[in-house]
Design a protein around this nucleic acid. Structure first.
Lengths: 245, 245
DNA sequence: GCCCATTTGTGCGTATGTATG
DNA sequence: ACATACATACGCACAAATGGG
């Protein structure tokens, strides 16, 4: 005996202990409890705190080192290498270009593709159109300083806004395209926020470790008269940023 | 040969494949793609869709069955048993009693404990007081229809609001206690939303499977003059509800 | 009742990952 | 680095239940 790993925890979970430890340590770092350059507690102490084996803690530290969050030096300890989480602002006038203003350098939105679709029940309900009606679908990935920070899908009714995709390809600005259609201003009607694990496609596009957690935002923008004009589904890596209302 | 499980995925992730499949299916259900009573695709089809073994899909379905989300019958298939996710509303006048109004029956907030603390840097910054100043800390768990739906910690400055905990114990209403202190109304100044895995304590208190995802909301409430009066940290099971702004 | 296709349930073997000491 | 125990994931095979001809 003496060798039995205690299964009480992990066996119902499907989430490895080392990953939960890594998540907890990362949270201390991005949450400000640990600042850049700070030394982490010794591995034996961490093992004690998380009631896990030192091997398991080391596995967590390896994962964090691979992410560039901590750096481990033999005989010295582990140190915080990269600190804070970005804040993405959400409000009545949420615009892509402003959400991360001042926090990151080069902001870039890349169009993965666009196509015409028939509105699903969810899209139709959000845009207040009949299910099956034609909608423009726009798939994008946004990056800050070269790091992917969001994966967004946007639906716009085709009847009221034909050629949206073509126009967007030119201006690269939602605001500008709506202006061409005579909508000088638009506002956020509602935002629904949830969280889940990333799927395979999101993992690849956002360059995440598989199993990473995403914040998911479902938003409806309306014109000044209150008519829905845009339905957007954005996915953000929860490790990298938080949403501020 | 022919038997090698492909490790390319799971070993970098720390999140089991069956759990990610369960999450994906649950998402289809709470997201409305599958309605109550609908039959899920056959296990072999699901296995194909997720590029996994049927055993692995079955493990995911077992987890969902244990949650009460689906029900499986031999020879017939698996069916959606419980559908929708709750929406917790967040706005300028967010109050506990109103956030889930109309969506659940019996709402209950249980006080786990309260004590005086010295404000940490984060708490002090949020409440605009000096670090180390005395604050009342209140720990609660809220339930809807007997199911725990949130775990909240609240900090209130002691100098301006002494005996907050004692008064709260009597009225069980934040609004009522602030009213006793002459604050007829208060509003939400900011809400920061992030997501992470639950830790051991949260797992126990919210009755979750270990490794479940939490939506974390950090909020600051202010009096009519704009002075911060309350700092709250709420954790919601992401499976169970979404936040609506 | 019988056959049949479909679907879930189960058992065995094997390779690899997780966690401990 | 080594040893141990259990969890995860795969592949194959077959049993059991369902529902329709």
């Amino acid at each position: 005996m003496t060798k039995r790993p205690v299964p009480s925890d992990s066996h119902l979970s499907g989430v490895a202990i080392w990953r939960r430890i890594a998540d907890a340590i990362r949270l201390d770092i991005v949450g400000g409890k640990l600042a850049q350059g700070d030394r982490l507690p010794a591995e034996t102490l961490l093992a004690q705190r998380f009631a896990a084996n030192r091997h398991t803690v080391r596995r967590a530290l390896q994962a964090l080192a691979a992410e560039g969050v901590v750096r481990t030096e033999q005989g010295r300890g582990s140190f915080v290498d990269q600190a804070k989480r970005l804040s993405y602002r959400i409000g009545k006038r949420t615009r892509f270009s402003e959400g991360l203003a001042g926090q990151a350098g080069a902001l870039r939105r890349q169009v993965l593709g666009s196509r015409l679709e028939n509105a699903t029940a969810a899209v139709a309900a959000a845009l207040a159109i009949v299910p099956g009606a034609k909608v423009t679908r726009l798939d994008t990935v946004s990056s800050a300083d070269g790091r992917p920070v969001s994966r967004a899908t946007t639906w716009i009714g085709y009847r009221d806004f034909p050629d949206f995709a073509e126009r967007f390809a030119v201006t690269a600005s939602t605001t500008a395209v709506f202006a061409q259609f005579g909508i000088a201003d638009y506002t956020r009607a509602s935002t629904r926020i949830s969280a889940r694990h990333a799927d395979a496609e999101e993992t690849a596009l956002l360059k995440l470790a598989p199993g990473a957690i995403l914040l998911v935002s479902e938003a409806v923008d309306v014109d000044p008269a209150g008519r829905p004009i845009l339905y957007g589904l954005s996915r953000f890596p929860a490790d990298l940023l938080e949403l501020v209302v």
